[in-house]
Design a protein around this nucleic acid. Structure first.
Length: 437
RNA sequence: CGGGGCGUAGCGCAGUCUGGUCAGCGCGCCAGUUUUGGGUACUGGAUGCCGGAGGUUCGAAUCCUCUCGCCCCGACCA
């Protein structure tokens, strides 16, 4: 993409409403635009990152055997009355009436819808287990939206729902998601720690929040310092194997959110306990028959008996992850994207637009990168070098390839690693080879 | 929802107490000159229903009333 044809409204100054670093940087980098409190438009740069994250989530869900579908954002109030949640949910639910005065709502989650769909078709134990997910916009009318996308009212969420015959099956489904989540976050360059969370009426050890440690995190969290060093996916089994040992090992290392942490009974000695703040990016939990029972989601078992389905649900805050990654990866100049989620891999900077040598080399590099399938953003604006460098640092592309008259005299271009700041001067071909590798 | 704050140019702000000489500044934007490896300098220019509606007054960004929006602190949440 050529910057002269792109839509990238970067800002030098920070809008006054932004308090935390990810919000400030997302606004300055032209990623999002607030349209109402807690509601944002995703501008092209932000949208690309959102899609990258979404795709990683999708691939890992698929790999874990979950099946994608897409459910509507607008739901009927009737279903929620059946589950008893229509009144329980309170003001957080955005309620809407259609032209016939029928009560509708903008879905904050989809347990009711998926359970209703599932029970309509699945009648036999032979069709279990299944795990269905979708990546869809949700709306929760937060009392007080804040921190930009991190705590917006409208947000993109991956929500998966597992259906099993019995608790043992549900446990296995849970463990698969547990592993899938560790893989998902690792691919985004994040260390997400599964922490014991409120499990509701069911109890047991099957509720975990996946937390990214960050100073700006919304909740206080506690974990064994071993987590900070742990090779999270070391010895990770395949999904076909017995997941118990892996699950047992990872849940044995202490990590708990504020709600579950009790200093007096904490098994970790004080000097080994890390106390920090965290951002919740995922939540998995088993809830048994909470929805299958009132909605009548049952199958016929091998002996002709009626079995109420065991369910669990598994959420990942896709849009929140954009902000969480920035919180975890930035410096005073801007964002530092991990390559896996970067909007473009390479930023090509032409330091002297209009100089025939610079233009030629840039055009060649641009074409070659595109041909090689490397995502590249070419800053071909007639701007001063300082402006270009500053913008490139701000939007945080992993590699900056700088072409200027000074380097070209000795036949080199400059390749900078945004994360490390390391700059090397190499030939045009060598740069290309490195970026296409 | 309680408490606090803010709405003046795209962004950041001054002006409001003490009504008139008040439509201002910096950045950005446009044109030109200049400069050319980390937000260059100079010159010229455009941009505002001073959030909205009522009122008080000869006169309102400024005072009063009512509204709408946004932000911060708390209780609530992926």
């Amino acid at each position: 993409m050529r910057l002269t044809r792109f839509f990238l409204p970067t800002m030098k100054e920070t809008p006054n409403e932004a308090q935390i670093v990810s919000h400030r940087l997302m606004l300055r980098a032209g990623m999002i635009r607030q349209t109402s409190a807690g509601i944002y438009a995703w501008l092209p740069l932000g949208h690309r990152v959102l899609r990258k994250i979404e795709q990683i989530v999708r691939e890992e869900q698929d790999a874990a055997g979950a099946i994608e579908l897409l459910m509507p954002t607008i739901q009927s109030a009737d279903l929620w009355r059946q589950s008893g949640r229509y009144d329980d949910y309170g003001k957080e639910m955005l309620r809407i009436k259609d032209r016939h005065d029928r009560e509708m709502l903008f879905g904050p989650t989809a347990e009711e819808v998926i359970t209703d769909i599932f029970k309509s078709y699945v009648k036999s134990y032979r069709e279990l287990p299944r795990n269905l997910y979708n990546i869809q916009w949700k709306f929760r009318d937060e009392i007080r939206p804040r921190f930009g996308i991190m705590r917006g009212r409208e947000f993109l969420m991956k929500d998966a729902y597992s259906f099993d015959l019995d608790f043992a099956g549900a446990r296995r489904a849970y463990q698969k998601m547990f592993l899938a989540y560790l893989k998902t976050f690792a691919r985004m360059g994040l260390r997400a720690i599964p922490m014991k969370a409120e499990s509701g009426p069911i109890g047991g050890d099957m509720s975990h929040e996946f937390i990214i440690l960050a100073e700006t995190g919304e909740s206080a969290v506690f974990c064994d310092k071993a987590w900070l060093e742990l090779d999270v996916l070391g010895n990770a089994p395949s999904y076909d194997e017995d997941l118990d040992p892996f699950f047992a090992h990872h849940t044995s290392i202490y990590a708990a959110t504020e709600e579950k942490h009790v200093a007096a009974t904490c098994p970790v000695p004080a000097d080994q306990l890390a106390s920090a703040r965290g951002i919740e990016v995922g939540h998995i939990f088993h809830f048994g028959t909470k929805y299958s029972k009132p909605l009548g989601a049952v199958v016929t078992g091998p002996n002709g008996e009626t079995i109420t389905l065991e369910m669990g649900s598994y959420g990942i805050g896709v849009s929140r992850l954009v902000a969480a990654i920035i919180e975890a990866s930035h410096d005073e100049n801007g964002i530092i994207w991990p390559e896996s989620v970067a909007p473009y891999k390479v930023g090509l900077i032409n330091l002297k637009q209009g100089d025939s040598a610079c233009d030629k080399v840039c055009e060649d590099l641009y074409d070659d990168l595109l041909t090689a399938g490397v995502e590249v953003l070419y800053d071909d604006r007639p701007e001063r070098p300082g402006v270009k460098f500053a913008d490139m640092d701000l939007i945080g592309l992993p590699w900056h390839l700088t072409v200027g008259p000074r380097g070209l005299k000795s036949g080199v271009v400059e390749l900078k690693n945004r994360a490390t700041g390391e700059k090397i001067e190499i030939s045009q071909d060598a740069a290309l080879a490195k970026l296409c590798a």
